[in-house]
Design a protein around this nucleic acid. Structure first.
Lengths: 147, 147
DNA sequence: TTACCTGCAAAGGGTTTGCACTTTG
DNA sequence: CAAAGTGCAAACCCTTTGCAGGTAA
């Protein structure tokens, strides 16, 4: 069995959760992926390494990780939930309604605003959801899909 | 029949949609309410004035309004969709994981950041979703629910 | 009058759960 | 070995849709 420990696995373990093959695989997929995965994609990617894993286990695993703050769930556009390992530096998403592309961007001004608000109101911020939807330059110009 | 026209009704009408009793009622509830209503609450409030209205009609109505940009849908916290008439000045939401309270706040820095990004990347922004979740001052101090 | 709209109930799709079995620690 | 985790399938919940009957314009 794999002995190398990723940050996510270390954290999970430290918090008293058992490290099962299924959880390890889900975490690995999340860490290796630079995309935002929904439960279904996560499930299929995980199945490549743990063929008998079930969708229920994927959901149960992301629930634990989410609760621990190790991953974040986004509702990109109008769709269902997407997950992503929490990045060192926060970043946000723009979803194009025309071509469906998701672009990541950072916004230090937003980070600062959040921090200021938290301090001023004495809030403990656990999650920041900042996503934009609209049309990208290409689609505005009558791009790929003609809109 | 009621002759006074709210902004929402005027806009709906102008866009070629028929003004039915059900739509009128849904719009009225949305305009009068200073809360963020989910489809179910909207349905019950609407039923007080139009007893035979169905949940399906509520959904169909908010879909039209959303598409026209007259109302906005938020996924506050982790819950299902909430609707709100689009305010003159944009504002955002903080949901307390402890007591469930939703606080509105504005963030000019965020507005500015969005505008800058849109100009720089030549995007047409249709919707901005910016919501924070965490614990409010009271709940951090071992408040209402003891957390 | 005729599109458009509604109510009803059934379908849909993502997510959660009950239960018996397996596995970790 | 006990407690925690898993797989499976059924249950759930919010939302959407098909259709027959209304209703605004």
């Amino acid at each position: 069995m794999n002995l190398e420990s990723s940050p996510l696995i270390t954290a999970l373990q430290a918090s008293g959760h058992r490290i099962t093959r299924q959880r390890r695989v889900v975490l690995e997929v999340l860490e290796e992926s630079r995309e935002h995965l929904d439960a279904e994609s996560l499930y299929w990617k995980a199945r490549q390494r743990a063929p008998r894993i079930s969708l229920a286990t994927v959901y149960r695993t992301v629930a634990v990780l989410k609760q621990m703050g190790l991953i974040a769930e986004y509702s990109l556009g109008e769709e269902h939930g997407h997950f992503e390992a929490v990045p060192e530096t926060p970043h946000y998403h723009f979803t194009c309604l025309g071509c469906g592309r998701v672009v990541e961007f950072d916004a230090p001004q937003v980070d600062r605003a959040v921090q200021e608000l938290a301090e001023r109101e004495n809030l403990e911020i656990r999650a920041v959801q900042f996503s934009l939807t609209g049309y990208c330059a290409r689609c505005r110009a009558g791009g790929p899909d003609g809109r």
